[in-house]
Amino acid sequence: GATAVSEWTERKTADGKTYYYNNRTLESTWEKPQELK
């Protein structure tokens, strides 16, 4: 079946920190989402 992984995108802030952005829920998080573990 379909997985939720594609909803999350790994992004970088202007100062180079990595965060994760969810295209479906429009939420962002510093922690790696469960779906990516």
Rank of each mutant, 00 (worst) to 15 (best):
residue 1 G to K: 04
residue 1 G to P: 13
residue 1 G to Q: 13
residue 2 A to I: 14
residue 2 A to N: 13
residue 3 T to N: 14
residue 3 T to H: 13
residue 3 T to R: 01
residue 3 T to P: 13
residue 3 T to L: 12
residue 3 T to M: 12
residue 3 T to Y: 06
residue 3 T to A: 15
residue 4 A to F: 06
residue 4 A to V: 15
residue 4 A to Q: 14
residue 4 A to W: 10
residue 4 A to E: 13
residue 4 A to M: 12
residue 5 V to D: 14
residue 5 V to S: 13
residue 5 V to H: 14
residue 5 V to A: 15
residue 5 V to E: 13
residue 5 V to P: 12
residue 6 S to G: 13
residue 6 S to F: 09
residue 6 S to D: 11
residue 6 S to N: 13
residue 6 S to Q: 11
residue 6 S to I: 09
residue 7 E to A: 06
residue 7 E to K: 03
residue 7 E to S: 05
residue 7 E to D: 15
residue 7 E to F: 07
residue 7 E to N: 06
residue 8 W to N: 00
residue 8 W to F: 02
residue 8 W to Q: 00
residue 8 W to K: 00
residue 8 W to V: 01
residue 8 W to I: 01
residue 8 W to T: 01
residue 8 W to H: 01
residue 9 T to L: 07
residue 9 T to Q: 13
residue 9 T to K: 06
residue 9 T to A: 08
residue 10 E to Y: 04
residue 10 E to P: 07
residue 10 E to H: 03
residue 10 E to K: 04
residue 10 E to T: 06
residue 10 E to A: 08
residue 10 E to R: 04
residue 10 E to N: 02
residue 10 E to M: 07
residue 11 R to S: 06
residue 12 K to D: 03
residue 12 K to N: 06
residue 12 K to E: 09
residue 12 K to W: 09
residue 12 K to T: 14
residue 13 T to K: 03
residue 13 T to L: 04
residue 13 T to H: 04
residue 14 A to M: 09
residue 14 A to N: 09
residue 14 A to Q: 11
residue 14 A to F: 08
residue 14 A to Y: 08
residue 15 D to V: 03
residue 15 D to E: 09
residue 15 D to M: 05
residue 15 D to W: 07
residue 15 D to T: 08
residue 16 G to D: 04
residue 16 G to K: 02
residue 16 G to Y: 01
residue 16 G to P: 00
residue 16 G to H: 03
residue 17 K to T: 09
residue 17 K to H: 09
residue 17 K to G: 06
residue 17 K to D: 07
residue 17 K to R: 15
residue 17 K to N: 07
residue 18 T to C: 04
residue 18 T to V: 14
residue 18 T to W: 04
residue 18 T to G: 02
residue 19 Y to A: 01
residue 19 Y to G: 01
residue 20 Y to R: 00
residue 20 Y to G: 00
residue 20 Y to T: 00
residue 20 Y to E: 00
residue 20 Y to L: 01
residue 20 Y to W: 15
residue 20 Y to A: 00
residue 21 Y to N: 01
residue 21 Y to A: 02
residue 21 Y to E: 06
residue 21 Y to F: 15
residue 21 Y to D: 02
residue 21 Y to R: 03
residue 21 Y to H: 08
residue 22 N to W: 00
residue 22 N to I: 00
residue 22 N to T: 00
residue 23 N to Y: 11
residue 23 N to D: 10
residue 23 N to V: 14
residue 23 N to Q: 10
residue 23 N to G: 07
residue 24 R to H: 12
residue 24 R to V: 15
residue 24 R to M: 11
residue 25 T to N: 03
residue 26 L to Q: 15
residue 26 L to D: 12
residue 26 L to M: 15
residue 26 L to N: 15
residue 27 E to G: 04
residue 27 E to M: 08
residue 27 E to L: 07
residue 27 E to F: 04
residue 28 S to P: 03
residue 28 S to F: 14
residue 28 S to M: 15
residue 29 T to I: 08
residue 29 T to N: 04
residue 29 T to S: 11
residue 29 T to Y: 05
residue 30 W to M: 08
residue 30 W to K: 04
residue 30 W to R: 04
residue 31 E to W: 07
residue 31 E to L: 10
residue 31 E to H: 09
residue 31 E to S: 08
residue 31 E to I: 14
residue 32 K to T: 06
residue 32 K to F: 05
residue 33 P to D: 02
residue 33 P to K: 02
residue 33 P to L: 02
residue 33 P to S: 02
residue 33 P to T: 02
residue 33 P to F: 01
residue 34 Q to R: 08
residue 34 Q to Y: 10
residue 35 E to V: 09
residue 35 E to P: 06
residue 35 E to K: 05
residue 35 E to S: 10
residue 35 E to M: 07
residue 35 E to D: 10
residue 35 E to H: 08
residue 36 L to P: 05
residue 36 L to G: 06
residue 36 L to F: 12
residue 36 L to I: 08
residue 36 L to H: 08
residue 36 L to Q: 06
residue 36 L to M: 10
residue 37 K to Q: 15
residue 37 K to A: 15
residue 37 K to D: 14
